[in-house]
């Protein structure tokens, strides 16, 4: 009899395979209905200047986030997207609230419940928002609300930072110091956060290993 993890991988492959077909089916269907297919040269040009950044970033994201999200959470989170701003923080706060250690089956299950709940809410809000875009536009574009939504990342990571830094502050010092220096000194670094996440993770892992081997943590 297959264990739970084997089943998750089977379900995940089926769902992700279906999502891939659907993902490719969207432009194919649109092209077929409109009777318009893109010309090869502009398509390749557009793909190249996009993929040269996003193919490596999304590839690295798989290796960076999948250990944090667990198996089912990865299949689901990567299908629904919005990982760094929503799915990963959702999983992190849920695991912390129930005091389960990431990398265990318990964490995998809690992470999946969090990511699924989050995906459902986001999908419904987007559907609601798309249907009511016209009347909602003045509210969404209200100048008074702009500072709140422009600063959702600091609002999110300030709280998460306290939770995780307080757990293991010695591990946090080096990656935070390096990231602050990089982001303050490298021009245009605010556009590089996707690239910097794996860099931060590698620095944190190297420092953690050194401290662990030296019995400092």
């Amino acid at each position: 009899m297959k264990n739970y993890q084997d089943k998750v991988h089977r379900w995940g492959r089926i769902w992700m395979g279906s999502a891939l077909v659907m993902l490719l089916g969207v432009p194919l269907y649109i092209s077929a209905v409109l009777g318009v297919f893109p010309e090869l040269t502009p398509l390749l040009q557009g793909w190249f200047i996009t993929a040269i950044i996003f193919w490596p970033v999304t590839t690295i994201e798989v290796f960076t986030f999948s250990p944090m999200l667990g198996s089912a959470g990865t299949y689901l989170g990567f299908t629904t997207g919005n990982l760094t701003n929503l799915k990963v923080p959702s999983a992190m706060q849920a695991m912390d609230a129930l005091k389960v250690d990431a990398g265990t089956e318990e964490a995998d299950v809690i992470s999946t419940i969090a990511i699924a709940s989050s995906s459902i809410i986001t999908t419904l809000i987007l559907a609601f928002g798309a249907a009511l875009m016209l009347p909602l536009t003045p509210l969404l574009e209200a100048e008074v609300l702009a500072p709140a939504f422009d600063n959702i990342v600091p609002a999110l990571f300030g709280a998460l930072g306290v939770v995780f830094i307080s757990k293991a502050w010695k591990l946090a010092v080096a990656p935070i110091a390096v990231m602050l220096v990089i982001f303050l000194t490298v021009p245009g670094s605010s556009d590089l956060v996707g690239v910097m996440v794996p860099v931060g993770v590698i620095i944190a892992l190297v420092v953690a290993r050194i401290l662990y081997k030296a019995n400092k943590i």
């Binding site: 990398g103 998460l160 946090a172 390096v178 602050l180």
Partner: peptide, 23 residues
Amino acid sequence: GEIFMNAMFLGMISAFLGYVIAP
């Protein structure tokens, strides 16, 4: 294993803390 996972989370958080202060 526990330290490894904590370090991964902190690596990600550190990148976003850096992002906040980026010009």
